[in-house]
């Protein structure tokens, strides 16, 4: 198993922490992982992206130009990364703010209205967990049990009371996924 994922959006959408939770879950599942962010001033309010690799084997390059999965949370990132998905790969996007829909026919495309869903369930901060849920529904690369463990590892102990809310957000993301192009 080797899964190469790019998660991209605005700074503040929880892009980096979503990647971190995924990577931690991978470690708990016994996988090799890398988490490589874009960093610097662009983090502050601009675009943010992180490359997460989960693999059964030692990971060589943490920096990639082609991905199995792209999780896209704004138009700029969609413009930049749609073409970087490998044929047969997966693209998940949040339609909020998307004016130019993805066009590829050789990849699976689905959307998750995570902004709306997070607001509906009264957990707007759980936005990134809704997105994570939609991804895990299609690619169960890590078990739910390990995701919860990963959550516990990546968020400070004083916030552990929020884990059940995050679990609900992940479940909501799994339920509310909309498929657009199925291979």
């Amino acid at each position: 198993m080797k899964e190469e994922i790019i998660i991209a959006g605005f700074g503040g959408q929880g892009v980096l922490s979503m990647g971190k939770i995924l990577a931690y879950s991978g470690i708990i599942q016994g996988q090799e992982v890398t988490w490589m962010p874009s960093y610097g001033p662009e983090m502050r309010g601009g675009t943010a992206n992180v490359t997460v690799i989960l693999s059964d084997k030692k990971i060589s390059s943490p920096i990639l130009s082609r991905f199995d999965v792209a999780i896209i949370l704004n138009q700029q990132s969609l413009d930049k990364f749609e073409s970087a998905v490998k044929p047969g790969g997966l693209l998940i996007y949040d339609p909020n703010g998307i004016t130019k829909l993805p066009q590829r026919k050789d990849i699976t495309i689905c959307s998750i209205a995570a902004v709306d869903i997070a607001a509906e369930i009264g957990n707007s901060k759980g936005y990134n967990m809704v997105v994570l849920g939609s991804y895990l529904k299609l690619r169960p690369v890590v078990t739910m049990e390990n995701v919860i463990k990963g959550l516990k590892k990546s968020i400070p102990e004083r916030h552990h009371s929020l884990i059940p809310m995050n679990e609900k957000a992940i479940a909501a993301g799994m339920d509310r996924l909309v498929m657009h192009n199925i291979l």
């Binding site: 971190k20 990577a23 470690i27 090799e32 992982v33 890398t34 988490w35 490589m36 962010p37 960093y39 943490p62 920096i63």
Partner: peptide
């Protein structure tokens, strides 16, 4: 380098 410093791994 910036990659090795900023990258997370186990």
């Amino acid at each position: 380098d910036g990659v090795v410093g900023q990258m997370m791994e186990k």
